[in-house]
Nucleic acid binder design. Structure first.
Length: 786
DNA sequence: GAGTTTGAAACT
DNA sequence: CAGTTTCAAACTC
């Protein structure tokens, strides 16, 4: 039989075709299987692998990499877990590894020997399915009467009993990607040699498989879903895997079927171990991969939830598993992000993810995200949507009607503004999304990333959270906060209490922060609402025309700046400085009346304050020593707010005490003062400091204009006191500032630049103190384009 | 919660 | 640009 099979293989047009296509070079028949097997079981515990296999593993790996690796992220890693990960493998494998399956199946011969143990029934299905797909190719979906196997396991056993073709085994094994597969393979090897009537049996098996597939037909997707949702039992898992595979199968039908011509023949041929076979298999694998790819693409485009689900499964091997699990809850809740997030995580975790897969999955994710986005955007467009920093905040607080949104936002809320500020928000862990991407990403991209960002950030965006917190504290008075706290959601929004300004002046914190006022605000006659967007923008523009930096963060980090700013700044107590400096007369810069203090930064030369005792750093540059600060604090302890101040000052002092360390440091360091401030429960963090710092005007613009506002990203930025690289600074700002005011001069004194002369108003300009540090100015697109 | 204080923002 | 007024947050009671 073996020979006949080989001959068939060689003669088969399909074989030739495959040969031509296959990237993998055919290996000698006997060895082929070995070579491939290792791939399949690469992750298998050494225990299960025979020396034989091991020897080949490497080569196999290599091959795998070329062929299927790309398509399956995390496949290997998951395999490592074996049974526990079986599902994942299966699922994952389905989506991306079909090609591999074939190939692996091929390998089966060798690895079989190693086969280990308890083959999960789940996998067996795969073995069956694959053939099924092939069969489909050759014939009609209905092809022939199909013996039913009651259960997958039953099928498997049946297959085994019938001594299914090596191919099947191989497939199975590959699908399992686990020891069980190997076991079968080993058996297969024997079988191959022994079996003569393989074909007939094969067919029967196939039919069985077909049967199984019947229920996995595309139309049954729902059913599958239902199954998945319904239970977590083995059956469910099985169904899940099937579900995943289904799409592929369909594709296979069309594609593979065409390519191969006659599935049966192909299948029967596969069993034989022959170089030709190998090539053929390889080709098939390729096809499958292609199919998978196609499917993925398809998935990307698909809109239906169900499709998405299946797609997700397909796209992300890891996700698939997750998805199945999550499915139950997700659908209705629109937790897509969760999925996405999970998926994201998975992807992220999957160190092995191939680029191709990633990209695909990314695309999918993007789709997902997009879908999700609407959720946010729906209803209260402006509020819920959050394209802008401010919006996001608002959304959180405002949307009472969007409880869901809020809730989710809360979980993910931090990230809501990400789209705009993705750059800053991307946590290190978000490796998936290259920072640059976010930076450069257009709104569209942002949207895509939106969900994922949210998710990821939620988990690992301490900064973001911090920022939010700050926001909360900053914006609302304790009273108000308490009121709003009920939901806890409102926390992150700014709330103003404007009565006369209509929230269209910088008096209004919301407006100043570039966010719309929301319900929690106690403002009267508020025009700072989406409804009056035009007005808001116009006003904003006007203000900007007067002072281009009006919406820039008030506190900027001087840091990076060390170099730029020069010694002086470095000498200054704090690494960050208020952009214009304060003008305190009575508060001694020890209360939040002082913007410097509020911002958690020390006073600097720019300040015109009198009797400065800023705990974060005095105007004269003398940083209060730890003791000093404490003393001061104690003295001023009366000030409730000082508690925090103390903390802050302590921190600050620590830094300050050590001139070296005091200076510009890492963003975190910088942020420290702020963070403590903002977080300290007793004391409300300085309100505007953060707001001002980060929230620049970008919000409105971004929202309305939809310009990518990288700089907006401030949340993180804020927290870090404007760590934004100068590069990020909007051209406008730079241009305006530097030219007119003469940006930073080389001299220590000149490091700060005063705002554009023209509009900046008398006060700022007149005093040397009120100069702006251009470098750290948070960028936001200025309305006054010119 | 009302009233006061404070200093930035806005205006002249 | 300087001075004044307006404003709303911060603060106090």
């Amino acid at each position: 039989m073996g020979k006949s099979l080989l001959d068939l293989m060689h003669d088969s047009p399909v074989f030739n075709f495959i040969n031509s296509l296959s990237p993998i070079k055919p290996v000698k028949s006997t060895h082929i299987s070995q070579t491939f097997n290792p791939l399949n079981f690469a992750s298998l515990p050494s225990v299960f692998t025979s020396p034989h296999v091991n020897s080949h593993k490497e080569s196999r790996f290599l091959k795998r990499h070329n062929c299927s690796d790309a398509s399956k992220p995390g496949f290997y890693s998951q395999n490592g877990n074996k049974l526990s990960t079986d599902e994942g493998n299966g699922d994952a494998a389905q989506s991306y590894d079909h090609s591999a399956e074939l190939r692996e199946n091929f390998d089966s011969g060798v690895s079989l020997g190693d086969a280990s143990v308890q083959p999960p029934a789940e996998h067996s299905k795969f073995a069956i399915e694959l053939p099924h797909a092939l069969k489909y190719d050759c014939g009609s979906p209905d092809c022939g009467p199909i013996p039913h196997c009651g259960t997958e396991t039953g099928c498997v056993s049946e297959l085994g009993g019938k001594s299914m073709s090596s191919v099947q085994y191989g497939q199975e094994a590959s699908e399992k990607g686990s020891s069980e597969g190997e076991l079968h393979l080993s058996e297969m090897c024997k079988i191959d040699q022994k079996t003569d009537g393989v074909e007939s049996e094969w067919e029967s098996l196939i039919s069985d498989a077909t049967d199984l597939l019947v229920f996995s037909s595309p139309n049954d997707s729902e059913t599958f879903k239902g199954l998945i949702q319904k239970s977590m039992d083995p059956m469910t898992r099985f169904s899940t895997s099937l579900m995943i595979q289904l799409p592929l199968n369909d594709v296979d039908k069309t594609k593979i079927g065409k390519a191969v011509g006659s599935g049966e023949q192909y299948e029967t041929e596969i069993p034989s171990a022959d170089p030709g076979e190998a090539s053929e298999l390889q080709e098939i694998d390729q096809k499958r991969e292609n199919v998978a790819d196609t499917y993925l693409l398809k998935c990307v485009s698909s809109n239906t939830t169900e499709e998405m689900d299946s797609e997700v499964a397909m796209c992300d091997p890891h996700a698939s598993k997750t998805v199945s699990i999550l499915h139950r809850g997700m659908r209705r809740r629109c937790l897509d992000f969760e999925m996405v997030g999970a998926r994201r995580k998975n992807l992220g975790d999957g160190s092995n993810c191939s680029s191709s897969i990633l990209s695909q999955s990314d695309e999918k994710i993007a789709c997902y995200d997009k879908q999700l986005v609407p959720i946010h955007t729906g209803g209260n467009s402006s509020r819920c949507i959050l394209p802008g920093i401010g919006l996001h905040l608002n959304a959180l607080t405002t949307s009472k009607d969007h409880k869901n949104v809020k809730c989710e936002s809360l979980t993910s809320g931090r990230t809501l503004y990400l789209p705009n500020s993705t750059a800053s928000f991307h946590s290190p862990t978000d490796s998936q999304e290259p920072l640059h991407k976010s930076l450069t990403s257009a709104s569209y991209e942002r949207e895509t990333d939106f969900a994922e960002n949210r998710v990821s950030h939620v988990e690992d965006a301490p900064q973001a959270s911090a920022y939010l917190v700050n926001d909360d504290f900053n914006q609302s008075s304790p009273k108000k906060k308490r009121h709003l706290d009920h939901a806890g959601e409102t926390e992150s929004c700014k709330r103003c209490n404007c009565k006369k300004s209509k929230c269209l002046k910088l008096y209004c914190e919301c407006f100043a922060a570039g966010v719309y006022c929301i319900e929690p605000c106690s403002c009267q006659e508020c025009f700072n609402k989406p409804i009056h967007e035009d007005t808001v923008l116009a006003t904003r523009k006007q203000i900007e025309s007067r002072n281009p930096l009006a919406f820039a963060p008030k506190v900027i980090r001087s840091s990076e700046s060390l170099t730029e700013i020069g010694e002086e700044s470095s000498k200054t107590p704090a690494s960050a400085r208020h952009k214009r400096g304060c003008n305190c007369k009575k508060s001694n810069c020890l209360k939040k009346y002082c913007e410097c203090y509020q911002g958690g930064v020390g006073c600097s030369i720019s300040c015109r304050c009198e009797g400065c005792k800023n705990a974060f750093g005095r105007k004269d540059g003398s940083a209060p020593t730890g003791t000093e600060a404490e003393q001061e604090e104690e003295t001023d302890a009366c000030d409730s707010g000082l508690d925090t101040a103390l903390q802050k000052s302590d921190l600050q002092n620590n830094e300050e005490e050590n001139p070296a360390s005091a200076l510009p440091k890492t963003p975190l360091q910088l942020g420290r003062p702020f963070v403590p401030l903002s977080f300290s429960s007793n004391d409300k963090p300085p309100r505007s400091s953060f707001l001002a710092v980060g929230t620049s005007s970008g919000f409105y613009t971004s929202q309305k204009l939809g310009k990518p506002n990288i700089l907006r990203s401030i949340p993180k930025f804020d927290r870090h006191c404007s760590t934004v690289p100068e590069d990020e600074m909007p051209v406008i700002l730079r241009g305006n500032c530097s030219p007119s005011t003469g940006v930073k001069s080389a001299s220590p004194n000149s490091k700060r630049v005063s705002p554009p002369h023209s509009n900046f108003g008398s006060s700022p300009s007149r005093r040397s103190g009120r100069k702006l540090i251009l470098q750290s100015i948070p960028s936001f697109p200025s309305l006054t384009q010119n």
